[in-house]
Computed example of a mutant assay.
Amino acid sequence: MSRSVIIKYVNPWKYRREQIAQRVAELRHRDGDNCRRCKRPMRFDLQDGHDLMPKIEEIAFGSSGESEALDNLCLTHTRCNAKHGCDTAEVKERARIKNEAALFAKSKQKRKRA
């Protein structure tokens, strides 16, 4: 068995960290060192949890199962990703539908009581 397969089962956290580091390196080579959202440089020498460190973000959310493909990913600052996470059209539409459904359910309950 190869070393990476053994590490995958003996220490899955280390294996996952290595996979993420490899993916960040590939995205950094492809896109450069700037954030996709704010276009400012990212810092790759910071510890986990810092606002200026890179975070992998999906560009297009889809049900096709290709969310892990490199073409569908980009690098952003952690703060940029968190700030704009709820601003997508899909999330706003989902929230609108959920609110309409809740209002419809309330009005239906009121009609049953009357």
Score class of each variant (00 low, 15 high):
His84Arg: 04
Arg113Trp: 05
Glu18Ser: 13
Leu27Phe: 09
Leu75Pro: 01
Asn34Val: 09
Glu100Cys: 07
Met53Val: 04
Ala21Phe: 01
Phe44Val: 03
Met1Arg: 11
Asp51Val: 11
Met1Asn: 11
Lys14Arg: 15
Lys98His: 06
Asn81Gln: 09
Arg17Ala: 10
Cys80His: 00
Ile6Asp: 06
Met42Phe: 04
Met42Ile: 07
Glu93Val: 06
Gln109Lys: 13
Arg111Phe: 03
Leu27Asn: 01
Leu103Glu: 12
Val5Pro: 00
Arg36Ile: 05
Lys55Ala: 11
Glu90Ser: 15
Tyr9Cys: 02
Asp33Phe: 03
Glu100Ser: 11
Ile6Ser: 07
Asn72Leu: 08
Gln47Glu: 15
Arg36Glu: 12
Arg30Met: 12
Arg43Asn: 15
Pro54Ser: 04
Leu46Trp: 01
Lys8Ala: 14
Thr88Cys: 03
Lys83Gln: 08
Gly32Gln: 02
Ile20Pro: 02
Val91Thr: 14
Glu66Leu: 14
Lys106Val: 00
Leu70Tyr: 01
Gly32Trp: 07
Asp87Arg: 05
Glu57Leu: 01
Ile7Tyr: 09
Asp45Ile: 06
Glu93Gln: 13
Ala69Phe: 12
Arg40Trp: 00
Ile97Ala: 15
Gly62Ser: 15
Asp51Ser: 12
Ala105Gln: 08
His77Gln: 00
Ser63Lys: 10
Ser64His: 11
Asn11Tyr: 13
Thr76Asp: 10
Lys108Ile: 01
Phe61Val: 05
Pro54Ala: 06
Leu70Phe: 03
Pro12Tyr: 10
Lys39Ser: 14
Leu73Ala: 05
